[in-house]
Design a protein around this nucleic acid. Structure first.
Length: 793
DNA sequence: GTAGGGTTAG
């Protein structure tokens, strides 16, 4: 039955189930005779006594079994118990045969997240003169990873080398995982590069590390490299790569990876279905996700939680409730994540009834200790207008977090009590960006524009960086005040701080300029159109484009046409895009044709793709090799296997025939540089930056290596040619056009030259930037003056 | 012995 009102979505029986259910007890008291089946510490104690009575307690193998049973129980108490057994045994036997037991303990502490304890056990073991073996290190590294003990991990790496274990694949894989997880992906890559043998775990660890370090693109590229190299991915690899695609919000790429999965015959398990469902939902393909979910035979809690939380995030609360109902029907017991989503549903619906059911469930199952649950409850009660209950939950929280305070403050604001909100804001023990955004937007909503801007200034003075949300409020405040100079400043601030312009911010900016009486400039419209393109808002994009001339009296530049072609092309309006290109008052460039080509590929329009390719070839003939360009287009469209193919062709052709070209992507646009290229619109700034870079790098000890210049010219000329190598241009552009803290990623069609290599190392150090150069041979990760390739490539 | 999914506030 298609329910039209909200209540029938979740049946009363299901609600009753939810209210009455209890999480299964972890303690199964069924008595068993052997250690293997031991389910809790009480049972284990009994067995321990029996074993002691039988006089078996002096056998190392028996004690080892006892200890690993404790480890498997995985509680703090059971590990303390294990430690006591170990101490007793050591006392009787003077360390003989205790290594296995120590390993077991380290593993146990690591597995329950008590990394510090694991490290302590390791140190104790060392102090007793017991040397670790190859099994010790993976456990120990996993402990370091779990508690982000970076310094300790580095030390462990040192010990691994000192003790001669640098050939052990398991240890090296653990090291990759450790480095990748603590943000030292360059070190992870280094370990990977130095490995003589690699297996699928080595690759997967690195891929996953990249994805987690915010380098999802590199992760996917690495995946295709792995496949090309002949290593067969398994289901874990797939989960990592698909989640990288989800992070990129790149549906096409995700589909491609999925295609690979089926073509390789990797068995699809529930975990993979889960990551696929997540990817489809994050990319907005809800129907496909739901179909996959429905087809999944063994739905587990996680896949239900995934689909539910995605629905909740997208405001599709009815759909979320349907999933909950299905979970209950299938006798799956909701856990804290499911309940978190359900509380959020109640909040969005303002349904105090459902909210109370959730609260009851939380109390019955002892889930109120989870910060996020209590925070969600506060938010829910506030949104349902039950302030007192919200406060009760708040006051009962042992560890109030910023989120708790923020929720209370937002609750006051929602109920129109700005002065109480203000008091909370001024008295909260710590505040974050959300706190500031909340109060600033409240002031704007109350028409207290000057105060909002004043607070924004305070925020600046405190060194808190504004984001998109802040700027929407501030732009709107500025618009109401009609303060033109401020409007200009805000616009400059957004540009300078590289705050990404989504549709809301772009609209607010246009609105702000309209109210201040001055024309928004072309850059605002680039942001606006790009935002429309990424959000698939074709109708709005068309209107905005038209309004440029009709309302704002700005004549569109080539970049605006580029945005429109991209917008129309992505949405499948290929003919309209082509018509627009033909009507352009200026000559279309490679970016325009490239966008159309990418769109043709996306929508499988072979004829138009052929046409676009021809036009591109015409343009490319007097510039760089068409293949380099194509390679970049493939790369920007996520066609990594095609990229690899083109690269191989380039290699086969012989590198010298192809001019050196480096490309860098900034804000979704690919900028390509050839050696000595001066065609870039920002060339003035790039040249100034290059001069500065050369000064600083030479001061740091860099001497140009002129042997890299193969031309027959004098020294000075050689030095100039060298200083304008394409990768240097691209890096310089990267430095001036991206934020401090973002890594600079350059793709080069040829092998990087040794001068650029040592140059990049020093730039990474003097400018404190991570630089990634992908040449036709391999990745180079420059960080703090070093490169991952160890100067060998 | 090594690698993988779902988490609140504007």
């Amino acid at each position: 039955m298609a329910a039209t009102s909200l209540s029938p979505v979740i049946t009363s029986q299901a609600l009753k189930d939810l209210t009455n259910q209890t999480l299964p007890k972890t303690n199964d008291s069924s008595p068993t005779g052997s250690l293997k089946d031991c389910r809790n510490l009480t049972e284990l104690r009994k067995l321990h006594c029996q074993i002691a009575k039988q006089g078996l307690i002096h056998r190392p193998s028996t004690v080892a079994k006892l200890i690993s049973t404790c480890t498997a129980l995985g509680t703090f108490e059971s590990l303390v118990y294990a430690k006591n057994i170990l101490n007793q045994f050591r006392y009787d036997n003077q360390n003989d045969g205790t290594l296995f037991m120590y390993n077991s303990l380290i593993r146990g502490y690591s597995s329950i997240g008590l990394g510090k304890e694991a490290i302590r056990v390791y140190l104790e073991m060392l102090s007793l003169g017991i040397s670790p073996d190859k099994y010790t290190f993976p456990y120990l590294l996993s402990a370091c990873t779990k508690i982000s003990a970076t310094a300790e991990g580095f030390q462990v790496h040192g010990s691994v080398i000192k003790m001669g274990f640098q050939g052990d694949m398991f240890i090296l894989n653990s090291l990759i995982h450790f480095y990748a997880d603590c943000g030292e992906i360059v070190m992870g890559q280094k370990v990977f590069d130095e490995m003589i043998d690699r297996n699928v775990v080595s690759w997967t660890s690195l891929i996953c590390g990249y994805a987690r370090s915010g380098l999802a693109k590199e992760a996917v590229e690495l995946f295709f490299e792995m496949v090309e190299e002949g290593t067969r991915p398994n289901s874990v690899t797939m989960v990592c790569v698909i989640s990288a695609c989800a992070k990129l919000r790149d549906l096409e790429l995700g589909e491609r990876v999925r295609g690979y999965i089926s073509s390789l015959g990797v068995k699809v398990n529930t975990l993979m279905v889960n990551s696929l469902v997540d990817m489809y939902m994050k990319c907005g393909a809800f129907d496909t996700a739901k179909r996959l979910f429905d087809e999944c035979e063994q739905k587990n809690l996680v896949v239900c939680n995934t689909i539910m939380s995605n629905y909740v995030h997208s405001g599709m609360v009815r759909e979320a409730l349907c999933i909950l109902e299905e979970m209950l029907r299938q006798r799956l017991v909701p856990d804290r994540v499911s309940i978190l989503s359900t509380i959020s549903v109640s909040a969005q619906l303002g349904s105090i009834f459902l909210g109370k059911c959730c609260h009851a469930y939380v109390l019955r199952n002892g889930l109120e200790g989870w910060d996020s649950i209590s925070n969600a409850l506060i938010d829910m009660y506030m949104k349902c207008g039950k302030q007192e209950v919200a406060f009760a939950v708040f006051h009962r929280m042992a560890n109030k977090t910023v989120v708790s305070w923020n929720s209370v403050m937002a609750g006051y604001i929602r109920n129109g009590d700005l002065s109480s909100a203000w008091e909370v804001f001024n008295n909260m023990p710590e505040s974050d960006l959300v706190s500031w955004n909340t109060i600033i937007s409240a002031l704007v909503q109350e028409s207290m524009f000057e105060q909002a801007i004043e607070l924004f200034r305070t925020m600046q003075n405190k060194g808190i960086k504004a984001d998109r949300v802040t700027m929407v409020s501030i732009a709107s405040a500025c618009g109401y005040l009609g303060a033109l100079h401020l409007a200009k400043w805000i616009h400059a601030y957004i540009k300078m701080n590289k705050i990404p312009c989504d549709i809301r911010l772009s609209t607010a900016l246009v609105d702000m300029f309209a109210r201040c009486g001055v024309k928004p400039d072309g850059v605002v419209f680039v942001g606006l159109l790009t935002a429309c393109s990424h959000g698939g808002l074709v109708e709005q994009g068309r209107d905005i484009f038209k309004s440029m001339t009709s309302v704002h009296k700005i004549s569109p530049q080539i970049v605006h046409y580029g945005c429109m072609v991209d917008l129309l092309g992505r949405a499948g309006f290929l003919e309209e895009a082509l018509d627009l290109i033909k009507l352009m008052p200026m000559e279309p460039n490679d970016v325009i044709w490239g966008s159309l080509l990418a769109a043709c590929r996306m929508h499988r329009n072979i004829d138009m793709a052929g046409y676009a390719t021809e036009r591109m070839k015409e343009l490319a003939s007097d510039r760089t090799g068409i293949q380099v360009l194509l390679s970049n287009i493939y790369a920007s469209a996520g066609k990594w296997t095609d990229v690899a193919k083109v690269r191989r062709q380039l290699k086969e052709k012989g590198a010298r025939k192809v001019p050196g070209s480096s490309s860098i992507e900034v804000n979704g646009q690919i900028h390509e540089f050839t050696s000595g290229d001066e065609s870039h619109p920002e060339m003035m700034h790039i040249a100034a930056m290059l001069d500065e870079m050369h000064c600083r790098v030479e001061a740091a000890g860099h001497a140009p290596d002129l042997s890299n210049v193969l031309l027959n010219v004098d020294e000075e000329e050689k030095e100039y040619v060298l200083s304008r190598h394409s990768e240097k241009l691209a890096i310089a552009f990267g430095l001036i056009s991206t934020d401090q803290g973002t890594s600079i990623r350059v793709v080069k069609n040829l092998r990087i030259c040794s001068d650029c290599h040592s140059f990049a190392k020093l730039v990474s150090k003097t400018y404190n930037r991570e630089i990634i150069v992908r040449d036709n041979n391999r990745f180079h990760f420059f960080q703090r003056g070093f490169c991952s390739c160890n100067d060998y490539w």
